[in-house]
Design a binder for these strands. Structure first.
Length: 833
RNA sequence: GCCGGAGUGGCGGAAUGGUAGACGCAGUGGACUCAAAAUCCACCGAGGGUAAACCUCGUGAGGGUUCGAAUCCCUCCUCCGGCACCA
């Protein structure tokens, strides 16, 4: 057999991947091969990748780690008779896009259009089977009109509100930053510490959905670690809120000072209290003597970077306020301090400090010489041990409660404080409402009008979209107001309430708003009456398989779930979890084991790989690299193995063979077994996203075919034709060009049309059993012999055969058999004494 | 500090209670060739054994459960990821 590479370039039978790509790409386009399925009576399959931001640097093979595997699943599902929706669109609004445009000195609408065109060109190189009729772009008015519509829906439902809040501010940028632009307390562009500035901003009340966001995680097939990250992020704590009484210095007045604690059983060990420096009550508690010191402390904590503020390494700081409080359970009078280890936004912003049973309180107490009183003993110990005891235990020095376990005491105290009217059991969440305002240009304008008389009013829905004007100058102003505030024709409008002069809101929405609903738009992307039709969402949603990087574990995936639940409550959709099955692809590192980056010069692009090895080889190699969910390094050498595999396949199928003669039945039966095994394994592997083993199985099957066809008569057999057919079908989702060409060359396309619309092959379980089975024989766990027997041999017969074997006898000599185990189709195990 | 994930040949990785190392890369030997590339065939965890047979060891370390453990349980080590004063 001659090899294709040895064939002259003019030989039409040579494997020429470029010629195949040119030939089939245009034909497939004409045939609309990737159109979204719409045939009645078929099951649907909606497969989606995380909404990509089309970055200026284009795609590397790392991105294909997501796009190629999902494409393979889509292709298999189409062949399995599903109506498949596999769309692609662009998360084009947002800070990265705006910053890229600023850096290029070109308008973001222009850079976005260029970047999108480049992404589409590169995705075409990998022949990902998107239906481009479904394409969407979040920065276009057709789309963001509906993002604004959803803002109004949230507003209507009381889930969007405006509040004063401290927000990250970078002096060097002269602007407010988003949380995600603050890395370890530094501005992402300047690597300089950021501080906080107080601004009036828009928030979404995601915390109202905390409990349902937790509950919903039980219903979805997601990686456990992602669910866990969301659970931790939401941070549910069950505890008690109790009012202590604070004495106002210099008067007889007392005000309630509420605290939140998860350990009300330690309440008899409180020796001081702490109020957060930003807490509004602080002002009233400060005595004249302490005022200067407290003011200086509050000022200093505000100026501190977040990294200094929250580092647990740092020594604790704080100042006495001059005020005292009364412990409502024992009447004790204790000092009130302010310290920045207490966070204003969590709980009540005040804490009862129990230095004997809390690490932080103890550290503080030791530093400032405050008393430490043990009130919990380790279970079973009458004496307190060394250091801080933070576990539940048994109460002591706690009056009537002595001797109760922490658990019992918490229940009783919860009831008691409620009876006394000084507090009650309460649930506290760690996460906060979603700050959605951005004082930046490149985003969906928040559809609100501010009127002096009527206040903040929503723009009527029929006036949407509020169009983002095309500004030339869109740099952040640094005033804390967005660039839109400088555009009179945008800013000035009439009030939808009273018709008088009014101003538009000039903040734009966080980019995560756009990606919180895009999966609903894809089934119905051109609808101009509504964000989507009820019919389209009822048929296609929820998303059956959602694939993207683990870095979005909390942000996007939590926001999208929140919006989905709101829409469900508004009666717009029939489900309340958007993504039934979620998987994270692993990253592709450069050949040097480092993250791919321009500066390291280790970026591999699809362009270079396709030019060198062709699309099919790139695709198959992306799958073969390693298991889908783990990180892998690119290798320029290993890809040659896939290139060889494709050439061998070409030769195997195109070779001229002598088809005369009668084949041996055993050879044909073994070929049939290999064929059925491959169908089963490849089908199951693609379903479970084990693409690397699917490709390995195809290699094994082609190796088995190569050795089978070397036997006389096999080439002319039906079994051989069946194997060729099944093999091509199984390989089709992985290597679409090669298989289509071979499908045509073996005469199948003319009769039956494209390989990509054929039925996926099915297997016969009965054909999977080999005629002869080899049983290893273990004696005390070590393999001492092997026997080959017909598959149907009974366990008793196997036992008899094994006992007659010389090797076995040798190991059994003088020993007693304790156990004799025959595991059908697997092995024989003997335990001897 | 807390939570999670992972440690298997020279390398990427298979195997989730049943023959450890499938499949591939690299390597070694051979065939073809004037030669090289490509291709094809064979070998390819470590040690012992002239070789075959066969034996011993071997999935981060140590212990346990089991006829049988990479896989399950306990203790520890290393690496990676997330959260990080959340009361």
């Amino acid at each position: 057999m001659s090899h294709s590479d040895n064939r002259p370039e003019t030989d039409p039978d040579r494997y020429d991947f470029e010629a195949l790509q040119d030939k089939w790409r245009s034909r497939w386009q004409e045939e609309r091969l990737y159109a979204t399925g719409s045939e009645k009576g078929r099951p649907k399959y909606y497969i989606l990748e995380f909404f990509p931001y089309p970055s200026g640097s284009g795609l590397s093979v790392g991105h294909l780690r997501n796009y190629v595997p999902t494409d393979v699943v889509s292709r298999m599902r189409r062949m399995q008779g599903h109506n498949v929706l596999h769309p692609m669109g662009w998360d084009a609004f947002g800070l990265p896009a705006e910053n890229y445009a600023l850096q290029q000195g070109v308008h973001p609408s222009v850079t976005t259009a260029d970047n999108v065109a480049n992404y589409k060109r590169q995705l075409a190189l990998a022949e990902t089977s998107y239906d481009w009729d479904m394409e969407i772009n979040s920065s276009e008015p057709d789309y963001y009109r509906w993002t604004q519509w959803f803002f109004l829906l949230l507003h209507e439902r009381g889930l969007a509100y405006q509040a004063e809040g401290y927000q990250w501010f970078c002096e060097l940028c002269g602007t407010v930053l988003a949380n995600e632009q603050v890395e370890n307390g530094n501005c992402w562009r300047h690597e300089k510490p950021v501080s906080k500035k107080k601004l009036k901003q828009w928030y979404f009340k995601i915390t109202e959905y905390a409990e349902r966001l937790l509950d919903g995680l039980g219903d979805v097939d997601w990686p456990e670690h992602i669910k866990l990250m969301q659970t931790n992020w939401i941070g549910k704590s069950i505890g008690t809120e109790v009012d202590f009484q604070a004495e106002i210095p210099g008067s007889d007045e007392k005000i309630p000072l509420p605290i939140f604690t998860t350990r009300i059983d330690t309440v008899f060990g409180v020796t001081y209290m702490v109020v957060a420096p930003e807490s509004p009550v602080l002002e009233r508690l400060v005595s004249p003597e302490q005022k200067a010191e407290v003011d200086a402390y509050v000022e200093a904590s505000r100026a501190k970077s977040e990294i200094e503020r929250t580092s647990t390494e740092r020594e604790k700081t704080g100042v006495f306020t001059g005020a005292h409080a009364l412990n409502p359970l024992n009447g004790e009078r204790i000092p009130i301090w302010t310290a920045d280890y207490v966070l204003a936004h969590y709980g009540t912003g005040n804490v009862m400090a129990v230095p004997a049973h809390d690490v932080r309180d103890q550290e503080f107490a030791l530093r400032f010489d405050l008393p430490i009183r043990t009130v919990i003993l380790p279970p079973g110990n009458a004496q307190a041990g060394e250091g801080v005891f933070t576990e539940p235990g048994v109460m002591t020095a706690s009056g009537d409660y002595d001797g109760l376990t922490s658990r019992a005491a918490i229940d009783r105290l919860n009831q008691d404080v409620e009876k006394l009217g000084i507090g009650k059991k309460r649930i506290q969440y760690r996460f906060r409402d979603w700050l959605i305002s951005r004082q930046r240009y490149w985003g969906a304008p928040i559809p609100i009008v501010h009127c002096d008389k009527c206040g903040a009013l929503p723009v009527p829905k029929d006036q949407l979209p509020v169009v983002l004007p095309k500004l030339i100058e869109y740099k952040p102003s640094g005033t804390g107001k967005g660039p839109l505030a400088t555009v009179p024709e945008f800013l000035n409008t009439t009030c939808p309430g009273c018709g008088g002069a009014a101003e538009r809101e000039t903040d734009t929405m966080d980019g995560f708003a756009c990606s919180s609903w895009y999966f609903l738009r894809f089934p119905d992307p051109k609808n101009d009456e509504a964000p989507f039709s009820e019919e389209s969402s009822r048929y296609w949603l929820p998303v059956d398989l959602y694939v993207g990087g683990a870095e979005h574990a909390v942000m996007h995936l939590l926001y999208a779930r929140f919006w989905t639940k709101v829409m469900h409550d508004a009666g717009l959709i029939h489900f309340d979890e958007p993504f039934a099955r979620l998987r994270n692809q692993g990253m592709v590192l450069g050949a040097d084991g480092q993250k791919m980056s321009k500066s390291k010069g280790n970026v591999v692009t699809p362009d270079s790989v396709v030019a060198r090895h062709g699309c099919d080889t790139l695709r198959a190699y992306m799958l073969f690299l390693g298991s889908f969910e783990t990180e892998v390094a690119w290798s320029d050498e290993a890809i040659s193995g896939i290139a060889r595999f494709h050439r061998r396949v070409w030769d195997l199928i195109t070779a001229d063979r002598d088809s005369s003669g009668e084949a041996e039945p055993a050879v044909l039966k073994e070929l049939e077994r290999q064929r059925n095994r491959a169908i089963k394994k490849v089908t199951q592997d693609i379903d479970s996203l084990s693409f690397n083993t699917a490709v390995a199985t195809l290699m094994e099957f082609s190796n088995a075919m190569t050795s089978a066809v070397a036997s006389p008569g096999v080439a002319g057999s039906d079994a051989w034709q069946q194997s060729v057919e099944s093999f091509l079908l199984l390989l089709a989702p992985v290597s679409p060009y090669l298989t289509e060409e071979l499908w045509e060359r073996t005469g199948r396309r003319e009769a039956r049309g494209t390989i990509h619309r054929q039925n996926w092959p099915t297997w016969d379980e009965a054909a999977l059993v080999a005629a002869q089975l080899t049983y290893p024989v273990q004696i005390n766990g070590k393999i001492r012999d092997r026997i080959e027997v017909p598959a149907e041999t009974s366990a008793d017969d196997i036992k008899a055969i094994v006992l007659e074997r010389a090797n076995v006898k040798r190991w059994l000599e003088g020993k007693e058999i304790a156990k004799f185990i025959v595991v059908p189709k697997r092995l024989v195990s003997i335990a001897v004494k």
